[in-house]
Design a binder for these strands. Structure first.
Length: 886
DNA sequence: TACTCGGTCACT
DNA sequence: CAGTGACCG
């Protein structure tokens, strides 16, 4: 036992868990003050039995209303209850207002120490440092205690205000002093929340997360509870096992059932070996420790969610039974998800990398428990892309079914990243500063960095797509009819290998990279729009600060002609009955070669269209706006070097609605040239101000981003469940701008990103045949088929693009100061830049500068680097809060 | 025929 | 790593 006791003050933490009191209700009461003091509950829209309660106010709780009730039940218990319905959007509940309120609270609670957002209405704080500082100033007089602090409860001390206050001011034990000081800080924070956000919350204060969480729930609402170490044994003796975090479910049940345990104290008496035998080494040890009130789980420094998801259930006979309905709802979910992603990008500079679609379904109406499956793919921003990709994923799931009943669907965007993974891009260009020696370039080219390697382009592959119109069938929710809407998606690819040079060449270039620059009206405009430059030295790039709200532009490729394959797509979508069939009745679906041929056919490579949509684009709002030929698009980008010219707006003739938008010069002007460049779309602000260096905005489409290492691991990848549909919706570059993802690292990877997930198209064989065949056998057959198809595309695409590139006039490149992307040139000494200058920079640039600084320090003082990282992290979230708390 | 709609984490 | 499942509220 002794070894588990705190022996060193340095290990002792002061942790708080803060939990908003019936948060959704408070949010609604703040919105509508008439509800204050009245029995209130928030119900989620759901006509069945009055909707489900997701929050119940304390007045209503006093009247017996419980969270598990439906709205109707609540009314029975409390006839005068105010039932507030959660806002809805896109046909589903929309929790945005609660998320925003939660962020508001977090911005207040994160002031005094490391803060971890645990959920929409809960945070953990590590107040160790703040408490230590505060310990010197703990009032010795009870009258000096803050009013909120006087309401503290101290476990093991008579729950009497004055006693608690006495306790707070009279500690002699270090651990208790620490908690007492933390409790005062927490009281102040809670008071700040009450005053500034007008929300009440409850808190627990203890030495770790588990105890703090336990404590926050002990006295609600608007109170706080402190759990001194000494109180643990007494507390646990009576505490039901299930109250411990993580033991509320099956694990807790199994402990109860198999070991006959009831309380946490019971658990404490189970030998470690027994626990480990039953639940494994890790879980066993974890149980052993938590039963003693010990918990090492750190308070993470994270105030933003790690993923965004939205989902909807279709219970009972609401289950979706055909693809049009599925697609409709996928789109509704995509609308919300896209909005949230854009908001996150604008506010926090973060971009998701992965799209996950989850489906719960059964295959017979009678089947009891639904089957849950999730599939994922790289995410491309934009409602249409999300819709198309997610629908592909979902359809992949359902394609094996003769019939399906989807009872729930969800989309989520994960792998949110705020900063480039590697510092390659900035270190690369920092090295270029004339007369300045960059530490980052010493220590050799970060050869381990794929990002850097990629930038040097062993094989530069540029790609653009031509899509086709795919018939999209969207069920009209109200009328129950279906309507066709055009959707650009898919699109066939075209490739050029514009640069070769293997390992040797790359290595030399890493050391002495030259970045060519070309003047272009876009560049000029961005530069002009960006306003005066700060004073000078180094170069970074970012782009205009100009607001681009309003119309968004997407560079999408498309043909006006529907290929047979695309028609087939439409058919598949509109005729769900086909799901699960082999497509034998449709030649277009019979083999992948066939599909490939069609898609690669003449008509598939005709145009690049510039599509615009409003920020709140809804079904049917998109319109095809501009058509450019591929040649026009490629236009002035000539040269065979991968890092050649920028797109030339002269060659881009955008016409149509977009031109006459009500937007001011920003949108209009950039739109003019944007159709063919990587003009940021819905993420305009951020794209312009942020990741330009990585993503190569505003020209230089051949630049590093699109260079791809030709690591050919095709065989393997080709078997991973994707099929080539030959349709790229947009250029790799444009897509990266939207995605903020690194270029695919292999040719195969590139295709996979472009590919639509495997659909119901399988082989000529019938379902019966397949049922008889072994899975392995079938898969390998498919793999071969797919591989042949891909090879055909490679050859074709390369040839075509090479032709185009050779036709294009070569660019007049200036070799100027290293610049990647276009837009503002920020000039400063990155090694000595002061905080206020740094603060002015776009978030992404800030992040890269910090990363570069860290990298440098890492070499010089590895230990200090860790500290710096922490400090920087705290710094990096500041803008978010500054914005939020305004 | 119904605990929604979010989230996080660990395992494999 | 993609996918599943446990757990939380």
């Amino acid at each position: 036992m002794a070894r588990y006791q705190f022996s060193d003050h340095a290990e002792l933490r002061a942790v708080s868990h803060i939990d908003m009191d019936c948060f959704y209700v408070q949010v609604e009461q703040r919105r509508n003050p008439e509800l204050k003091g009245k029995p209130t509950a928030v119900v989620q829209y759901n006509p069945w039995k009055g909707g489900g309660l997701i929050a119940v106010g304390y007045e209503a709780r006093a009247r017996g209303v419980k969270k598990q009730m439906r709205g109707d039940d609540a009314r029975e218990h409390c006839p005068d209850i105010n039932l507030v319905t959660v806002p809805t959007a896109h046909g589903k509940a929309d929790l945005t207002i609660y998320r925003e309120a939660g962020a508001e609270v977090v911005s207040i609670l994160s002031r005094k120490g490391r803060c971890e957002r645990a959920s929409i209405d809960e945070v953990y704080l590590d107040l160790t440092e703040a408490a230590k500082e505060r310990m010197a100033h703990v009032p010795t007089n009870r009258d000096d205690l803050h009013a909120e602090a006087q309401k503290s409860h101290v476990l093991g001390v008579t729950p009497n205000v004055s006693d608690a206050s006495s306790w707070l001011v009279s500690r002699t034990e270090y651990s208790e002093q620490l908690l007492a000081a933390a409790a005062l800080i927490v009281a102040e924070l809670r008071e700040a929340v009450r005053m500034e956000a007008r929300f009440s919350c409850s808190a627990g204060v203890a030495h770790n997360k588990m105890l703090a969480k336990l404590a926050s729930n002990m006295h609600k609402p608007a109170q706080q509870t402190l759990v001194p170490l000494a109180a643990v044994p007494g507390l646990f003796e009576e505490l039901p096992l299930k109250k411990l975090r993580q033991l509320g479910g099956k694990l807790g049940a199994s402990l109860e059932n198999q070991l006959g345990l009831n309380t946490a104290g019971d658990l404490m008496r189970v030998p470690l070996e027994r626990l480990q035998d039953m639940h494994g080494k890790n879980v066993g040890m974890w149980l052993f420790r938590i039963s003693r009130g010990l918990d090492d789980d750190p308070v993470n420094d994270r105030v933003l969610p790690k993923s965004h998801g939205c989902s909807k259930t279709f219970p009972g006979r609401n289950a979706l039974a055909d693809l049009p309905a599925v697609r409709h709802w996928v789109r509704q979910l995509a609308l919300e998800l896209d909005q949230r992603l854009e908001t996150d990008a604008e506010q926090n500079g973060r971009f998701a990398r992965l799209l996950v679609a989850s489906v719960s379904y059964h295959t017979e109406p009678t089947l009891a428990s639904p089957h849950g499956v999730s599939k994922s793919c790289p995410i491309a921003y934009g409602v249409d892309r999300i819709t198309a990709d997610a629908f592909g994923l979902v359809r992949r799931v359902l394609s094996d079914c003769q019939a399906f009943y989807v009872t729930s669907m969800g989309l989520s965007a994960t792998n949110l990243q705020a900063t480039p993974e590697k510092t390659a891009s900035i270190t690369t260009f920092l090295r270029k500063v004339p007369g300045k020696q960059s530490a980052a370039s010493d220590g050799g080219a970060p050869t381990g960095s794929e990002t850097t390697d990629r930038g040097e382009g062993e094989t530069a592959l540029d790609e653009e797509g031509n899509g086709g119109l795919r018939g999209q069938v969207a069920a009209d929710e109200k009328e129950g009819t279906a309507q066709i809407e055009g959707e650009r998606g898919g699109g066939s690819g075209e490739y050029a290998e514009t640069s070769t040079g293997g390992e040797a060449r790359r290595k030399t270039e890493v050391g002495a990279r030259k970045v060519k620059r070309q003047r272009s009206p876009l560049r000029d405009w961005l530069a002009a729009a960006s306003g005066p430059r700060p004073a000078s030295k180094v170069i970074s790039t970012g782009g205009s600060e100009g607001k681009g709200k309003g119309l968004e532009r997407e560079v999408l490729a498309g043909t006006a002609t529907q290929s047979d394959a695309l028609k087939a797509e439409g058919r598949a979508a509109s005729e769900p009955a086909e799901c699960g069939r082999t497509g034998a009745d449709d030649p277009a679906l019979q083999s992948e070669e066939l599909r490939g041929d069609e898609i690669d056919g003449q008509h598939a490579l005709e145009g690049v269209s510039c599509v615009e949509r409003g920020p709140d684009s809804t079904v049917g709002e998109e319109c095809e706006d501009v058509q450019l030929t591929l040649e026009e698009w490629i236009g002035d980008r000539g040269g065979t070097d991968s890092r050649s010219a920028a797109a030339d707006p002269e060659h881009a003739s955008c016409e149509g609605r977009g031109r006459t938008s009500e937007n001011e010069k920003g949108a209009a002007s950039s739109a003019e040239v944007a159709g063919v460049t990587a003009e940021p779309t819905g993420l305009s602000d951020l794209a312009k101000s942020g990741h330009a260096d990585r993503l190569d905005l505003g020209g230089e489409l051949g630049e590093g981003n699109v260079a791809i290492e030709d690591r050919n691991n095709g065989e393997e990848k080709a078997d991973s469940g994707f099929e080539w549909k030959g349709a790229l919706a947009e250029t790799a570059t444009a897509r990266q701008v939207r995605n903020r993802v690194e270029a695919p690292k292999s040719l195969e990877a590139l295709w996979q990103k472009a590919a639509v997930p495997k659909t119901d198209v399988q082989s000529e064989r019938t379902v019966e045949d397949q049922a008889g065949a072994s899975r392995e056998g079938r898969r390998s057959t498919q793999s071969k088929t797919r591989k042949r198809s891909l090879d055909g595309h490679v050859a074709d695409a390369k040839e075509k693009l090479q032709k185009l590139w050779s036709k294009a006039p070569s660019a007049k490149d200036e070799t100027g100061p290293a610049e990647v992307g276009s837009g503002i040139t920020y000039e400063f000494d990155w090694q000595e830049v002061d905080q206020s200058t740094l603060d002015e920079l776009p978030l992404a640039i800030q992040a890269e500068i910090r990363a570069a600084q860290r990298l440098q320090m890492q070499r010089q003082q590895p230990k200090a680097a860790k500290k710096l990282e922490k400090a920087q992290h705290a710094q990096s979230i500041k803008p978010f809060f500054q914005r939020k708390s305004r």
